[in-house]
Design a protein around this nucleic acid. Structure first.
Ligand SMILES: [Zn+2]
Ligand SMILES: [Zn+2]
Ligand SMILES: [Zn+2]
Ligand SMILES: [Zn+2]
Lengths: 132, 132
DNA sequence: TTTAATATCTATAGCCACTATAGAGTCAAG
DNA sequence: CTTGACTCTATAGTGGCTATAGATATTAAA
């Protein structure tokens, strides 16, 4: 299989697959005589795994770590657990920040009737005076 | 006032102030004979304005646009309004994504009892099989 | 068989909003 | 006069890609 076909099967851009190779998330592929990358079907699973991890917004270095752990199936999975728990924490923090942001932004929209002059616009005024 | 003092008053890193200058968010400052930037107190307000906009996660180009609009106090403020509304939309989208993420991550943590072997860990299995 | 289209290759730059570093110059206090 | 704090420019790094240029390889049609 060449990279274009891998790309179609995984729905990942060709560039991204090559990028993952440079980052050692997948092994360097073999090459044809003409220097084209050749893959066997295993890589599809590996890339799908990476994709799912990215869906969860895990960083590439986290994913690399998880892959390393997968290579030691007898190790205790505590570290995997911690990674996911940390991710949950991060998501919670981000959600909190976004809730705060939303409150502030909606207060801003309330302070403008949309047909004022810029000089009188409540949004602009609030941005000047905001004490956060 | 030199840049260090501006930095202290605004609590923005010196680098950031210089960066904002390169991005034309603030005008190029005057210079001393020794080529040090000199500011008058106006810049404090400008930087505070930028800071508050950044608190709302507005992009630097949005902020630049808002600054341009502020220079035309007689224009209608519709565009300011749109910028903020777009920002609210973005925040809502991100919140939705994060809620989805949180659900998935918490389902993952539930699928692992933390003391399994990596080979049996429900988290790893879920990441392999996930069909999202 | 020639040619044209498509696929692949590497290397490099761009995105965003900074942050960090190196190496040189400026200035004030002791 | 030296020390130290401050400032200057230029450059590279962050993360996770994405886009481009220019070269080479392969495939398909004419
Ligand atoms: Zn998935
Ligand atoms: Zn308004
Ligand atoms: Zn603020
Ligand atoms: Zn587990």
């Amino acid at each position: 299989m060449k990279i274009g076909q891998v790309s179609k099967k995984t729905d990942l851009p060709v560039q991204t697959i090559r990028y993952y190779e440079t980052q050692n998330l997948i092994k360097s592929a073999g090459r044809t005589e003409g220097n084209f990358r050749v893959y066997d079907s295993k890589v599809i699973d590996q890339l799908e795994f990476i994709k799912h991890c990215r869906h969860l917004d895990l960083s590439l270095s986290d994913i690399k770590r998880i892959n390393e752990l997968r290579d030691n199936p007898n190790a205790v999975c505590e570290e995997v657990n911690e990674l996911i728990n940390d991710q949950v924490k991060m998501v919670k923090i981000k959600m909190k920040e976004l809730r705060h942001l939303k409150t502030q932004l909606e207060a801003l929209t309330d302070s403008c009737s949309n047909n004022q002059k810029v000089g009188d616009c409540g949004i602009i005024k609030s941005l000047q005076e905001c004490d956060c």
